[in-house]
Each structure stands twice: as C-alpha cells, then as structure tokens.
Simulated assay, not measured.
Amino acid sequence: MFQKQLLDKLQLELPANTSLNEAIATALDISYDAAHRRSSFKSKFSLEESVILAQYYNLSLDRLFENTKDEIIAVEKTKLIHNETELQHYFDKSYESLYPLLNKKESHILYSAKDIPLFYTLENNLLSRFKMYVWLKLLDSAMVSKEFDSFSVSLSTLQSATALGNLYQNLNITEIWDITTVNSTLKQIHFYNQAGLLSNITALKLCKDLKLLITTISEKVKTENENYKFYYNELLLMNNNVLVSTKERQSLFVPFTILSYFQTSDRITCLQAEAFLNKQLQSSKLLNTAGEKEKLTFFNKVYSKIDALHQLIEASQILDFE
C-alpha cells in the first residue's frame, strides 16, 4: 500500500513530459527495466530507495499515509550557530539550498519583511559587518565583551555571505514591509552604542549606511520595475517568512531562532502559506503603482526613524560632560 501511495504521489508531482519509470530510474540511478519492475509492483522499494526518491522529488513521506493529519508535516531545520565557522557554514548551506530554486527562470520570492531582508545586509560594507557582529554577539559566548571597532570576520566568511546576498539580485521579488521593518536594526545600533561597544562615530556612520540602503531600495520601487514589487502593510506585523516558488515546486522558510529556520516543500503547506501571504498583499498598498505622495510618505517615515537615532547619538556627544 505504501509503494502505491508513493508512486501515486510522485505521479502527481512530475512534469507532464516525464514518465514515472524515467523519474524512478533517474532518482535511484537504476535501469529503465528495474524502474518498471518497481512501478508495476513486481519489485518493492527498499526503505533507502523510498527515502532517496522522496528527497529527490521533494515529497513529504508523512503525507503518504491516509491517517496522517494535515497539521503534521516534515521539515528540515538548519543547524544552530555558535561561532563564525558555523556562521560561514550557514551562509554556504543557505546558498546550496536556494541556488537550485532561484536559478530557475520562473522563480519568485515572496518575503514578509519583519526585519530588513537578510540578503540586503550581506555585502562587504560597514552595515553588513555590523549585522554579523550582532548575530555573533548573540550566538557566540566568546564575543561577550567584544567591541565592534575591533571586530572582523575572515575573507572566506565575507565571500560566503556575499555569494548568498548576490542570489537576491535580478530576481522576481515581492516584499511586504511595514514602518517597523527597520526597527530591529535601529535598536541594535542604539543598544550597542549605549553599552559602550559601538563608538559614536561608527554609530553615526551606520545610520548613514542604513539610510543609504533604504534610499537604494526606494529607487527600485518604480512602476516599470516588473521584477520588484514593494508592498506597504499598515495593518499587520510581518514575520520574516519567505516563500520561494518555481514552476515545479515551492519551498517555505520559517524563522526558528536567530538566523536559523525551518524549511519545507510540503505542497499543501506551501499553498496555504501562499494563500495567507496573498491575503496580506490584498490588504497592502503596492507602492510601485502608488502616487508619489504615498511613496514619499512611507519612505520619509522610515528616514525619520533613522534621523531620530542619528540626532540622539549626536546629542549624546554634545552632552558628554566627562
């Protein structure tokens, strides 16, 4: 019964021009005749073959049983990060996971941006270095008293981060933001500045870099830019969920802890996530096609937040009596 359910599920997921026997032979690296014996139930799949077949075509084995509840799905979890080496490994594994999806011509990313999308802060600049500092401060016990101005990462870590960040360029992307999307980055700058681990001069530079990043994003929000859609949602807070869709499959990435996430390609779950995100889009404002006043209103509110922190840091310099 399991073998029939597995084959029925596989048949539903295959492109129209791919035969069942061809799919089995490709995934298991066996002959066409051996594949035919399995598809005709003359031979049984071994447990290892079932797992390989399911992984190759992103099938959820837990859904092959009739009594499986819709509330239970199989997910893949990224490893937790405790130091820079593991941070680089995270960048590399994320790249390996996303590249096969994003390399397809018809791929699409739908990003619910509670925080500034990770990919924007994976460059070789001051803001990106600061974000890595924050992540490692929270994850690496050896970083407890480390000041930002004395912090650096290896060239290989920077290269891995940049490679992952570059995946986000020239893609079909839809982002949903709200006014609070920049809050966590602003809080991080303010916190470490107040804690004495981030100098006033560097904190002010970070504010300028953050404002430059927001300006760069705002310049992409144009009517004619069909590959980048920017939505503003005034009603709901985002959750950093990311849905990647291609012609053949979908994958949902859900935050787990700092940086780490759950990933699933379960078809029903991804469709449910897509339906929910589409509802968010319906209650959001597409700034690409909005009037100039609406665009300026949104981005000016974001700039005002950054300016407020910039002024606060400047004021603390003036009022420093020691």
Rank of each mutant, 00 (worst) to 15 (best):
L186R: 08
L319V: 06
E226P: 03
K220A: 07
L28R: 12
T264F: 04
I258M: 10
F91S: 07
A161V: 03
V254P: 00
M143V: 02
A113V: 06
M238Q: 14
T162I: 04
F148I: 01
Y228R: 13
A74I: 00
S112Y: 06
T78G: 03
D115L: 08
T289F: 05
N225L: 09
V51I: 15
L122Q: 13
R37K: 12
R63P: 00
A16S: 14
N17W: 04
E322A: 14
E274A: 14
S40G: 08
F276V: 03
D70V: 08
S184N: 08
V51Y: 07
Q317Y: 02
L28N: 13
L101W: 03
Y231D: 14
I173Q: 10
T257V: 05
L7T: 05
V51W: 05
K77F: 04
L126M: 05
Y32D: 10
N200S: 15
L213R: 09
Q11V: 00
S260M: 08
I179E: 12
I306N: 06
N166D: 09
H36Y: 11
E224R: 14
V144T: 07
S251D: 02
N288A: 09
D149H: 04
E175G: 02
K229V: 11
P100R: 01
L10Q: 02
K77R: 06
I73D: 04
V182K: 02
P100M: 01
N241G: 10
L10K: 08
C270D: 11
